[in-house]
């Protein structure tokens, strides 16, 4: 499903007497079916407000949101069918697990969709398989007994069990250890491909955004400050820092090499292996 936002405006009522405005203002974006986009911006820049327009938790006060065949504006009603299509994984989603067994937790959403018991079981099996959770050995266990990384996976599986076409992930790896983090990111990439999802990824971790997404929107004060392909956005190191954001590790290293006069190419984000090759070439080139 494609997602199109046209001049979406949502302002919060704030009951203090400052002139500052909170919300999102005139946001426009077009995300084609199957794309992966990153949304970055410091705390309070409007990322969450924007995300909550994607499944019509908030209705725009002005402008409109088009998701597949659904059009959402300030007067929209009957949004249940839309919400089925958009899976939202909020920060620390495991806090929302509540059933006694993993099976029941995962069945909660599909049951509400009115699926038959067989359909529910299939949806759960599919979601657990995608997250590499073993159905037979885990279905009757309590979600509370699991490790942090496993709990996180169950929480994400409960969203996938609804078979969404759009997946919105808000800091999905926060608080996980480095290994669990890496595993989960790789899983998310393969799930996205396998299910052909349109993916929105919100994160403060610029290396994760670089790894996972193709196109990035940079938010500040409720507006899109700039946007572009990952390569384009992460070359704007000065702009990103001015917005209190970081840059990927590779760009930081290239900056330091540049400062020492060892490098004068583009400050392009890259994976560590590629960066290592580049540094090797720098050293070899100099010695030749």
């Amino acid at each position: 499903m494609a997602v199109i936002l046209e001049k979406v405006y949502y302002k919060y009522d704030v009951d203090d007497n400052t002139s500052e405005e909170y919300g999102i203002f005139d946001i426009s974006m077009t995300v084609e079916q199957g794309r992966t986009v990153g949304i970055i911006g410091k705390t309070g820049s409007g990322k969450s407000t924007l995300m909550q327009h994607l499944n019509a938790l908030y209705l725009p006060q002005k402008g409109k949101v088009t998701i597949g065949e659904f059009v959402v504006d300030r007067k929209s009603k009957d949004l249940k069918n839309l919400r089925k299509k958009v899976g939202m994984v909020f920060q620390y989603p495991e806090d929302q697990l509540f059933e006694e067994t993993i099976y029941n937790d995962l069945a909660f959403g599909p049951k509400n969709l009115g699926l038959t018991n067989d359909q529910i079981e299939n949806a759960i099996k599919g979601a657990m398989e995608d997250l590499e959770l073993d159905f037979e050995s885990m279905k009757d266990r309590s979600p509370y007994e699991l490790s942090g990384g496993q709990k996180r996976k169950v929480a994400i599986a409960s969203v996938l069990a609804m078979n969404p076409e759009i997946l919105v992930l808000d800091e999905p790896t926060a608080g996980l250890d480095p290994k669990s983090k890496k595993d989960l990111l790789n899983l998310l990439i393969s799930i996205k491909n396998k299910r052909n999802l349109t993916l929105f990824f919100v994160s403060h971790n610029m290396d994760d955004v670089f790894l996972l997404t193709e196109y990035v929107y940079v938010m500040c004060d409720g507006r899109i400050n700039f946007e572009g392909s990952v390569d384009e956005v992460f070359q704007e190191n000065k702009k990103l820092r001015d917005l209190d954001l970081g840059v990927p590790f590779s760009v930081e290293v290239l900056e330091l090499l540049e400062k020492r006069g060892m490098y004068n190419g583009p400050l392009k984000p890259m994976e560590l292996e590629e960066l290592a090759d580049l540094i090797k070439d720098i050293l070899r080139g100099n010695n030749d």
Partner: peptide
Amino acid sequence: EPTSMLDPKG
């Protein structure tokens, strides 16, 4: 884990 929910600047 005082920093796990913060942005890079935080």
